[in-house]
Write a protein that binds this DNA or RNA. Structure first.
Length: 471
RNA sequence: GGCGGCAUAGCCAAGCGGUAAGGCAGAGGACUGCAAAUCCUUUAUCUCCAGUUCGAAUCUGGGUGCCGCCUCCA
């Protein structure tokens, strides 16, 4: 498995710290609002990475945090006339609704900053004791000048960073790049007691503390959006490596950002679409396929038009599976000819090609291309006289690959008796060559989202919304 | 100013030195009562310039354009 490591800016062969294990930390959202599709991208992409690694036999431990205390949380709680705690509870619950909808499997741990205050304080104390942090007034800052390799992830020197700093100089800091580990309490804000007085943790410290607590001092993979490289991940490195003296993460993975009209989508800019509003218009799997259709490190431009294109592509996927399912139900058990055998024998090649794409820095776009190649092969081969065993093998191949991407996972719908009756009536009309009636029934059903397809073997139908097929 | 990324057909998008995957849309054909689905055929010399090489979309240098980070942000 090759992964592009932001730290070295090259693709590297993935070698886990502990053989057969993958310990990964993924930076999660600040829970002051519904997640938008920009938040959804890392969740989906790294979910696929995790699924693939598990498919490869790795024991994966995934941790994703929730930032539930910071300036935005406090401000938003004030606006919504609620407490920071309630705000967090609410949006964490909503996060899970959206993530579940998108088919994102649950992480092993979802630690929250506010539930690790003691750990955070202990960690800051270590940094202070080591001379890497200092108290200034009510605050505690990280002393970036005391950490020689500061800037190694973002490829910037301390001087470069300072030169470009757009921040107001904070008088208390020794150095403008120093960042808060602990912020002294301000009137009306939530706070916790600490050796430095009442206050709350800074943003970056929670990730260092919780990653180390749940995964160890050196983790395999640390993932997040490219916009977190600086300062967030840079600071995490300074904190973690400063405290432990050990490498923090072996591989840094960063997904590209999502643009709207070629401008970055972000909550602060206000040009965002929430996951739930998009899911009202599109099947969540469309969003998923869309995210996986380009390489995770490339920026992608988001638009409804592109989702519509993706929707059509997803339908092709479901059609292939649906058609196959239909054939399988009616297929002869019969003998397997040389031609059938030849078809079946080449199926594993698609798995190989798929894996090769995935092994190359999670090239999901290439992997999806392989799936569509397979689909053409299957569609060309498939027919009513093909032996059941071979058709089943083809379907297994297809499902194996789409499962890894978390696609085509929807349950088949059930026919209710009324619809079944209508289909029977239409069949009778067709036998009588009463095309007008037959078409009317078909049109009526279409109104209800039931699409009929006449095939030499009989009527096949599917629900339009889910594109899943029944017979 | 510093750091980084991107530029492939109408739209989206793989490609990592050997002569352009795949999807969407379009055109033509097959099948069909009509549809739908499916299959077949068809649509690019890869932003520009120069260089390295027997050979470059792929490597090097330069130009142009766009974007991200350097402030909260996935």
């Amino acid at each position: 498995m090759k992964l592009y490591n932001t730290m070295t800016r090259t693709k590297e062969e993935f070698i886990p710290l502990h053989p057969g294990e993958l310990r990964m930390y993924s930076c999660g959202p600040t829970v002051y609002n519904y997640i938008h599709i920009g938040n959804a991208r890392p969740s989906i992409v790294f979910d696929v990475f995790r699924r693939y690694m598990e498919y490869k036999g790795y024991r994966v431990t995934l941790v994703q945090n929730f930032t539930d205390i910071d300036d935005k949380m406090i401000r938003r709680a004030g606006e919504e006339d609620t407490t920071v705690r309630e705000l967090g509870e609410h949006y964490i619950a909503e996060y899970f609704k959206d993530a579940d909808r998108l088919g994102i499997r649950r992480a092993d741990y979802y630690p929250r900053a506010t539930e690790h205050i003691d750990d955070i304080i202990a960690f800051i104390r270590v940094l202070v004791d080591k001379g890497l942090a200092y108290q200034a007034g009510e605050d505690v800052y990280y002393d970036t000048a005391a950490f020689p390799s500061y800037g190694k992830l973002s490829g910037q020197s301390l001087e470069d960073l300072e030169a470009g700093a757009r921040v107001d100089i904070n008088e208390r800091k020794k150095n403008s790049m120093d960042f808060a580990l602990w912020k002294g309490k301000k009137p009306g804000e939530p706070f916790w007691e600490s050796p430095w007085g009442p206050g709350r943790p800074g943003w970056h410290i929670e990730c260092s503390v919780m990653a180390i607590k749940y995964l160890g001092e050196t983790i395999d993979v640390h993932a997040g959006g490219q916009d977190l490289i600086f300062p967030h991940h840079e600071n995490e490195i300074a904190q973690s490596e400063g405290a432990t003296g050990k490498p923090f993460a072996r591989y840094w993975l960063h997904n590209g950002i999502i643009n709207i009209d070629h401008q970055k989508m972000s909550k602060s800019a206000g040009n965002f679409f929430t996951v739930r509003e998009i899911c009202e218009e599109f099947d969540p799997e469309v969003v998923r396929l869309f995210m996986l259709s380009s390489h995770y490190r490339n920026p992608i431009n988001f638009s409804r038009e592109l989702l519509e294109q993706t929707q059509s592509a997803l339908e092709r996927l479901y059609n292939a599976d649906g058609n196959l399912g239909y054939l399988i139900r009616n297929a002869p058990e019969g003998p397997v000819s040389a031609e059938d055998q030849k078809f079946q024998n080449q199926l594993p090649e698609y798995t190989t090609d798929f894996e090769n794409a995935m092994e190359d820095d999670i090239n999901t776009a290439g992997a999806i291309g392989v799936i569509f190649d397979l689909i053409r092969e299957i569609n060309t081969y498939a027919g009513p006289d093909r032996p059941k065993a071979v058709l089943c093998a083809a379907r297994e191949e297809l499902i194996r690959l789409t499962d890894i991407l978390g696609l085509m996972t929807k349950k088949k719908g059930k026919l209710d008796g009324e619809v079944e009756d209508l289909i029977r009536q239409r069949q009778k009309a067709r036998e009588d060559k009463n095309w007008a009636l037959a078409d009317r029934i078909r049109d009526d059903l279409k109104e209800q989202g039931i699409v009929l397809e006449d095939t030499p073997q009989g009527v096949r139908w599917k629900r339009q919304e889910s594109s899943s097929v029944n017979s």
